[in-house]
Design a protein around this nucleic acid. Structure first.
Ligand code: ZN
Ligand code: ZN
Ligand code: ZN
Ligand code: ZN
Lengths: 147, 147
DNA sequence: GTCCATGTGAGACACAGTATCAACTAGAGA
DNA sequence: TCTCTAGTTGATACTGTGTCTCACATGGAC
């Protein structure tokens, strides 16, 4: 499995490139993430871990998630209810369209959003440093299944 | 103080309009929210409550926050770090530009964003039901203060 | 004023994430 | 290959945030 392969290297090679060790627990977390379909919550990941890698520590999973996030291979997103979920990412900066029915998420690029942000900045004198956009709805295949 | 006055009525009148009781604790929470400058975290609100309204229950504050949210007078937003904050809102649907220096937030309307969402839908066959945009940066007055 | 659905506070609880620390190990260098 | 050490790990305890329960209180309709 390869998380973030679009960036040209596997997560594990990226780890050593970043000076971080390629350890057995990190391999396990990477495998768990790769096995997830669409976005996943920490709870789901922890459950999967308990089954497939008993002995893998809770804290280690959170630490790996943080590390992978800082490397850009995974991204945290905010669910409408207030909880958090994660997605394995392919590209540097983007947003997610999350299907509330099947849970899969599609990446959305910034096309057009930059203009929106520019107009926010222009009108108010606000200097934008970060932004976050999340889109929720129903994906094409779930729509087809319903119809 | 009036929260959400742009909608034509005070929060308290809206409560009775919605069939909810106008109680002393809810008045207190409304006053606390009105006294906040910009967005605020639950922790901040709880601290303020302990000072100004000792005896006001923790759960009651969360309940009031939920109620006010469902009435659209307050909105929960996601901070970059993963925590949550709240803002008193003036208009129905909008987004926030949050100054990471002074904490104030400005409302941002959907101008242009609708097009972005439409293009997301158009290209992928995704049907958008909800979305969330949050913009972080430095506000005009904080920029001026720094310069 | 009476009455009861609605709302309240205290405290127990569930859950997510963090801090600590002794033990372990990846991987660089001899 | 062997050694050594900084980086990493798992157990455990802990904090913080938000929820649940339930006996008690109260808003507001009548
Ligand atoms: Zn779907
Ligand atoms: Zn973006
Ligand atoms: Zn500011
Ligand atoms: Zn919008």
């Amino acid at each position: 499995m390869t998380v973030g392969h679009a960036r040209g290297g596997s997560l594990l090679t990226a780890l050593s490139d970043a000076g971080a060790r390629v350890t057995e627990p990190r391999r396990a977390v990477a495998a768990l993430i790769g096995a997830q379909d669409g976005h996943f919550t920490t709870a789901q990941l922890l459950t999967a871990a308990r089954l497939e890698y008993p002995g893998l520590g809770r804290a280690t999973i959170f630490r790996a998630l943080d590390l992978f996030t800082s490397l850009g291979f995974v991204e945290r997103m905010d669910l409408p209810g207030g909880g958090h979920a994660w997605v394995a990412c392919e590209t540097a900066h983007h947003h997610h369209a999350i299907c509330t029915r099947c849970g899969r998420s599609t990446e959305v690029d910034d096309h057009g959003l930059a203009d929106v942000l520019a107009s926010v900045a222009g009108r108010s004198g606000f200097r934008v440093t970060t932004h976050r956009l999340e889109v929720f709805g129903t994906c094409a295949s779930c729509l087809a299944a319903t119809a």
